[in-house]
Computed example of a mutant assay.
Amino acid sequence: MEASLEEYRSEIREWLETNTPPDWRDHLQTSSEEQVVDFYRAWTRELHEAGHLVPHWPKRWGGQDLGFLGQVVKEQEFSRADAPRPRPLAISLGHAAATLMEHGSPEQQQLIDAILDGAIFCQGFSEPEAGSDLASLRTRAVRRDDGTYVVNGQKTWSSFARYAQWCLLLARTDPDAPKHKGITFFLLDMTTPGITVRPIRQATGSAEFCELFFDDVVVPEPMRIGAEGDGWKIAQTTLLTERAVQMLEQTENLRRSLGELVGQSRRLRGPDGTPLGDDPGFRREAADIGIDIEALAALTERALASAAATGQIGPDSSVLKVFFSELLQRFTRLATEAHGMDQMGGTGEPREVGFLSGHWFVDHLRSWTWTISAGTNEIQRNIIAERVLGLPREGRS
């Protein structure tokens, strides 16, 4: 395997050096949102045709059987080349694919081919009053005599939903069951009548997130994943994938961005007019962040090695989520302060090129989504205390 990984590293490095779109960041910053999505979908297809989209997947699903170590190599080389990751397809390639591979029927698994061709999935999980406490969701799916389900309710914070072809939907099918037991998982075709998508404009000026409204939306029975009432258990595949596997990409992005900031510090000036790179305070904080990036990388690789051995990612993924989100905030704050007031002008029309785009003030604003999404850090600390450290559960009123 080691020889194969090194061969793959050479292969993908050479390919990215030749094929990474030049000045892609500048190009996307001046493109419409529709053009940005089209760019990423085309890039997804190009990566797949070259064998570099999902090298860690099994061959039967279009990968190269390189496992999580192959994904580590891929992310390292993408960072080295500063190549674009297909952000609008993050849900598709991570959450949707993992769920379909693990729990989908043979018919449902045919959608994996659509993912490799650029199909965008969104998530219908969080609700206005069911975010961190996701099991409190109220969206209802009522089964009719013909076997179809009728869905009514609302979802929020659904990334790229207005461009999605499919939605991973959690809905309550048994209102009388305990809240974790009455939830069912569905695949929802976003062209189905009765779905309304409303973008949510953020402080950065972008509208990546959306609200979803369901008014008597009919879902065929074959679009239910698993059995009724198994939705919470199935959703853990999706959520744990989000918190662990994606850390590979984010860790490499942090490494690259810290190197970029250190390079910029040689020309930036501190309050006294001396080079910022000579300032002891800046150097100390940058070094601390660099050490924590390497710690995050080690924790991520350990979690994924455990997943490869056991077949599942445990609650340690909550540690990764808290560690990364707060590290991202520290880094983007340092970068914003390093550039001074010039960095705090208008955000313009920022495009979704990643959480570390190089516009440090926008990146700092966007970093706060990480401490809220996929379960707030407060909720994650409860999980760590109870399920990782084995501390007694806090009293519930």
Rank of each mutant, 00 (worst) to 15 (best):
S4T: 09
S10G: 14
E11H: 15
L16M: 09
L16Y: 12
E17A: 11
T20M: 04
T30M: 07
S31D: 07
S32T: 15
W43S: 01
R45W: 08
L47C: 08
H48D: 14
H48W: 06
E49W: 02
G51D: 09
G51N: 09
H52C: 03
V54E: 15
P58Y: 06
G63T: 03
Q64P: 05
L66R: 09
Q71P: 01
Q76T: 06
F78C: 01
R80G: 03
P84T: 01
T99I: 02
M101Y: 10
E102R: 08
E107V: 05
E107F: 06
A114D: 14
A114C: 05
I115S: 12
L116H: 12
D117T: 08
A119W: 04
S126H: 08
P128N: 04
P128M: 00
P128C: 02
A135D: 15
T148D: 11
Y149P: 09
V150F: 05
V151R: 05
Q154K: 06
Q154E: 11
K155V: 02
T156I: 02
S158T: 13
S158R: 04
F160W: 14
A161D: 09
R162F: 07
Y163M: 04
A164M: 05
W166F: 14
L170I: 06
P178W: 06
G182M: 01
F185M: 08
L187M: 00
D189P: 07
T192E: 08
P193N: 08
I195W: 04
T196A: 08
V197W: 01
P199T: 07
I200N: 11
A203S: 00
G205S: 12
S206N: 11
E208G: 02
C210Y: 07
E211L: 00
V219M: 11
P220K: 01
P220V: 02
M223E: 10
A227Y: 11
E228L: 05
D230M: 01
W232F: 10
K233G: 03
A235P: 02
Q236E: 08
L239D: 15
L239A: 15
L240R: 09
E242P: 00
R243L: 14
R243F: 11
M247A: 12
L248H: 06
Q250M: 05
N253A: 10
L254N: 07
L254F: 13
L254P: 06
G259Q: 11
E260P: 06
L261D: 15
L261N: 15
V262L: 10
G263W: 12
S265A: 15
G270M: 02
R284E: 15
A286L: 06
G290R: 00
E294R: 03
A297I: 02
T300M: 01
T300I: 00
Q312M: 10
I313L: 10
D316A: 10
D316M: 09
S317M: 08
K321V: 00
K321H: 13
V322K: 12
L327A: 08
Q329N: 11
R330T: 13
A335D: 10
T336K: 06
H339A: 04
G346D: 08
G346K: 04
E352D: 14
S357W: 13
D363C: 00
H364V: 03
W370L: 01
E378P: 02
I379T: 11
R381E: 14
N382L: 00
P392Q: 11
E394A: 12
G395P: 11
R396M: 07
S397E: 13
